[in-house]
Design a protein around this nucleic acid. Structure first.
Length: 940
RNA sequence: GGGGGUGUAGCUCAAUCGGUCAGAGCAGGCUCUUUAUAAGGGUCAGGUUGUGGGUUCAAGCCCCACCACCCCUACCA
């Protein structure tokens, strides 16, 4: 007779093979058609809300694996909060404006021969371009299993968003935050336009460098010597900087006295041919700071200022300062109150400006000279050099080769040039008297926010503390227009009322209306009824910095969408979660704008994650693509195609995202192994519940067998730890805890031990039902604990769990155990005995005495303390050791001996493989043990 | 150049206030099983906690210097 059919062998439709790549899209389609997100929102309609506000990715290109990590982390938080009973609305967003799209589109238009396209044409094309990639990325994000309101994302190009952004801007204008100032920008002379950083390329360039002497005021024949590679900026010279940490000396050479840094004296004397120079005396920093000099060819004097950016690698230790022509110069100029003087016009020609009295400015011979370098020379340089020679100020000129910024389109060297810009005043004291300066308010707000990791607070405070005023205008086309005008005298008109009117208009017709409508009509539409200021004759062509776009999302999204309002009516988000680069980016722009416009920080907690690095722990770079580096592109799609989304999600969960995150084939493969471990664990449990109906078969808690009570206690301990890890957003701990539990407590212990009862006990027996009750409870809750991470697999398993309360695991509520359950003392002893017995069994196995442990009988000689606890648990001890029988006797100390079961007069039962004394007692079933006979009789 | 972060077995993570904590899982070697079988069990091996100093009765943990990598920022007059 074939007794195999009488066993309760496992069965399930939950396959061992995951086939994630094929199966996940089917489940996605199912979620989509049943509107799982909508169901979830409805099911939690009365629940407290947990709002995670999405930071908008840039709408360009495929979703990068790093972007996928960010979205998956967000989804882990949302799904875990939802399981715990929160309503978790999620409105994804996209950042749509900005240079990368504009330049891409401009290139495309040029390729089509439309190089002279007007602003509206470019913007329409940019809009289409952004929307194309939003659609693409939306697909790719959804493929990640991220649930959200994908049909109603927020887009920074949406008219309503732009309008809200401008209303926020209007508030800032009204409160006096916004002012007009000058700032040096990269300027392309051939294109007559400001360049963004990304449009600048560095290339080797030979400059005409010069050593120039400035005569000191009140000190005959005494000069300070400066060095510059841009002689054409000398007309803009307003100061000289020195480093207070250096030592300087007065040096007598060739009949004059020169002030020079000691460390550069040797090289300078060689260049200038100073034979037998003499050091007269050293000069102290205080003395230097008191000096004045005469400009070599302009009728003005300048002062010397200390500055720590001055280095002594080249030059003279004194730096020529032109605040209108360099960032360092500009900062120094601002801090000591120099005008931001830039005597260069849009065409790159030297001109006089209104910043200084005309008589102090450049001589007539320089006016109109072009700074544009052709074949290494420029008119302006030549004219300045001639003038320096004439004034006997030029000490030496030499070619100097260095890396210099060039315009990426014209390939010509750019110039640094101060132009008018709009700024937000960070130290604004505001209209409310007695209020702290805005920077202080921001620092206080930062202090009240929960930053994870905690060093995030430090970092953003440092950023806010040291940041200069915020330059918010850009000379770009693809952005939100700054609704400013200019009057007949060229003075700007920026007014909150005007901005609000423009916002209303833009909300109706989109921001292209600003570019397509003639200034007269615009002015007529935006001019407030009670306007008494100057009349506009020209409109602003500037756009807002894109950080104003995304930074306005608290106004345009959090305050705008009712579904994101907190249970208490508040609009602040519970969590923002982005890469740590956003401390200077979105976190800061959001904070500053929300604080200035809405009066509070937009977030309660800010989480940050690190960056993606490759197996060498180096950043994933495009240059490594192909050429012996990465074989495949680093897009999310490529990893999803190779491993399936749940493996990628598990990978995200597996690492401590607070520092760098390693992405490599090896790592993914390892995580794939863990995935299979977990999947097989779930599969084992499901396959042993095929005949279990929790409603009718479940065993009451006090009727559960000791082993089952033990594993439920272990599981409660796990559950408490997992819940704590989720609450702390420490998903890598969830990964470690769950995978180790599956491997150690379940696979190696409980599942292995319990096979015997599940397979061989009568199907409806109390002991088998007890174990099924435990398995069912563990399976249900383990599946829930995994659901945030293995979004697809957990849902697949959930469908197969008998009596599952909801259709999808994501709709279910998880009430994890609150605390760890201590193990009963007897079981502690039983496990320590098992731990000692297993190596003994292994010895017997190595000696070829036994194969499996069921082939053995174990004899335990135990001290009284152990014995007392074990005596009533001999059956459990036998199960734990998976042997055929145990004996327990008294002894002074523990001793465990292994006996081959056959030698103990036992025979192997054909059905359960135990070696028993009563095999063959029943003549009908001569190869079975007594227990199996009992199990078989009702079947026959 | 400046600011922030990270560095513990091949991999991913632990180690409460400095005090039997150098630990787990996986991977790897050996092996058993064929009643989870493209599964499962047992068992063995592995680290001078990035390097070099210092403080302390005691340091993976605190201090200093250095190295590597990551993020931000600035600059090359």
């Amino acid at each position: 007779m074939d007794y195999k059919n009488s066993l309760n062998l496992p069965r399930t439709d939950f396959s061992m093979q995951a086939n994630l790549v094929q199966r996940e899209p089917q489940r996605l389609a199912q979620w989509h058609s049943s509107d799982l997100y909508g169901q979830l929102m409805a099911a939690r309609a009365e629940s407290p809300r947990f709002v995670l506000h999405d930071g908008p990715p840039f709408a360009n290109g495929d979703v990068h694996i790093g972007t996928a990590l960010n979205k998956i982390l967000k989804d882990l938080i949302l799904k875990s909060k939802s399981l715990r009973g929160f309503q978790t609305p999620y409105i994804p967003g996209w950042d749509c404006h900005g240079l990368p799209i504009e330049s891409k589109v401009t290139q495309e238009l040029r390729a089509q021969g439309k190089s002279e396209a007007d602003a509206a044409t470019i913007r329409t094309a940019c809009d289409a371009y952004a929307r194309k990639y939003i659609d693409l990325q939306r697909q790719q994000f959804q493929r990640l299993g991220v649930l959200g309101d994908w049909n109603n994302p927020y887009l920074t190009l949406a008219p309503q968003y732009e309008a809200d952004e401008l209303r926020q801007f209007a508030d800032l204008v009204e409160k006096g935050f916004v002012y007009r100032g000058k700032k040096p920008v990269y300027w392309s002379v051939p294109f007559r336009t400001a360049l963004a950083e990304a449009e600048v390329e560095y290339a080797d360039h030979i400059s005409q460098s010069v050593f120039v002497r400035f005569r000191l005021v009140g000190e005959p024949n005494t000069y300070v010597v400066v060095w510059t590679t841009t002689p054409w900026t000398l007309p803009a010279n307003l100061a000289v900087a020195f480093n207070p940490k250096f030592f300087y000396s007065y040096v007598f050479a060739q009949g004059n006295t020169y002030l020079v840094a000691n460390s550069l004296l040797t090289s300078l004397s060689e260049k200038c041919g100073w034979e037998g120079y003499q050091i007269i005396r050293t000069a102290q920093a205080e003395e230097l700071a008191s000096l004045q000099y005469e400009h070599p060819f302009c009728e003005r004097t300048g002062r010397l200022f200390p500055a720590d950016f001055v280095d002594d690698s080249t030059g003279t230790g004194f730096v020529h300062i032109a605040p209108g022509h360099g960032m360092d110069d500009y900062q120094l100029g601002l801090s000591v109150g120099l005008p931001i003087y830039c005597p260069v016009d849009d065409e790159g020609r030297l001109v006089a400006t209104a910043d200084l009295p005309r008589e102090q400015q450049l001589p007539e011979s320089l006016v109109g000279k072009s700074t544009l370098a052709k074949a290494g020379k420029s008119e302006a340089n030549e004219a300045v050099l001639a003038l320096l020679t004439e004034k006997e100020a030029l000490m030496r000129r030499e070619d100097y080769s260095h890396s210099y910024p060039h315009c990426w389109r014209s390939k010509s060297p750019i110039i640094f040039r101060a132009v008018d810009q709009w700024f937000i005043r960070v130290d604004h004291t505001g209209n409310s008297p007695g209020a702290l300066p805005f920077r202080q308010q921001a620092l206080a707000a930062i202090d009240s926010v929960n930053w994870i990791p905690d060093w995030g607070k430090n970092r953003i405070q440092g950023a806010v503390q040291s940041r200069p005023d915020w330059c918010i205008s850009r000379q770009r086309t693809w952005g939100v227009p700054i609704p400013a005008f200019y009057d007949a005298s060229g003075e700007p008109i920026l007014d909150a009322g005007i901005v609000r009117k423009a916002a209303d208009w833009i909300e109706r017709e989109g921001s292209n209306v600003w570019f397509t409508t003639p200034v007269e009509a615009l002015w007529a539409g935006c001019r407030p009824a009670d306007w008494s200021g100057p009349e506009a004759v020209r409109k602003s062509q500037d756009t807002l910095d894109v950080w104003i776009d995304s930074g306005s999302s608290s106004r345009a999204v959090l305050m705008r969408r009712p579904e994101l309002r907190g249970s208490d009516g508040g609009w602040q988000a519970d969590v923002y979660l982005e890469g740590s680069d956003q401390h200077r980016g979105w976190f800061q722009s959001s904070l500053l704008l929300s604080l200035a416009g809405n009066g509070a920080a937009p977030f309660k907690t800010v989480l940050t994650h690190g960056f993606m690095v490759d197996e060498d722990r180096e950043k994933i770079s495009k240059s490594k693509q192909g050429q012996g580096g990465y074989q495949k592109p680093q897009t999310a799609e490529r990893y999803i195609k190779d491993y399936g989304c749940d493996v990628v999600r598990l990978w995200v969960a597996s690492q401590d995202y607070r520092s760098d995150i390693v992405v490599s084939e090896e790592r993914l493969k390892k995580v794939g192994e863990t995935y299979r471990l977990i999947r097989n664990t779930l599969r084992y449990q499901l396959s042993n519940l095929y005949d279990f109906n929790p409603a009718t078969d479940a065993v009451a808690d006090d009727q559960l067998s000791g082993l089952d009570r033990w594993i439920l206690g272990e599981f409660a301990t796990l559950e408490a730890a997992v819940a704590k890890a989720y609450d702390a957003y420490e998903f890598h701990l969830v990964y470690q805890l769950v995978s180790q539990f599956c491997a150690v407590q379940l696979s190696a212990m409980y599942h292995d031990v319990v096979k015997d009862r599940l397979y061989t006990d009568p199907a409806g027996s109390a002991r088998r039902r007890s174990t099924q009750t435990a398995l069912h409870r563990i399976l249900t809750r383990l599946t829930q604990a995994l659901a945030p991470i293995l979004a697809f697999t957990a849902d697949e398993a959930w469908e197969q769990i008998p009596g599952a309360a909801t259709k999808s695991v994501h709709l279910s509520l998880w009430n994890p155990a609150a605390a760890a359950v201590p193990t009963e003392p007897a079981w502690t002893v039983l496990f320590s005995l098992r731990e000692q017995a297993l190596p003994e069994l292994e010895k017997a196995r190595q000696a070829k005495l036994i194969g499996k442990s069921l082939d053995a009988v174990l004899h335990f000689a135990l001290p009284a303390v152990d014995g007392a606890l074990v005596t009533s648990h001999e059956a459990e001890l036998r199960e734990l050791c998976n042997c055929s029988a145990v004996t327990v006797t008294q002894a002074a100390e523990r001793q465990i001996t292994v006996q081959v079961a056959g030698e103990a007069g036992r025979k192997k039962c054909e059905r359960c493989w135990h070696w028993e004394l009563n095999v063959g007692d029943n003549p009908t079933h001569p190869t079975l043990c007594g227990r199996c006979v009992e199990a078989v009789i009702p079947l026959s």
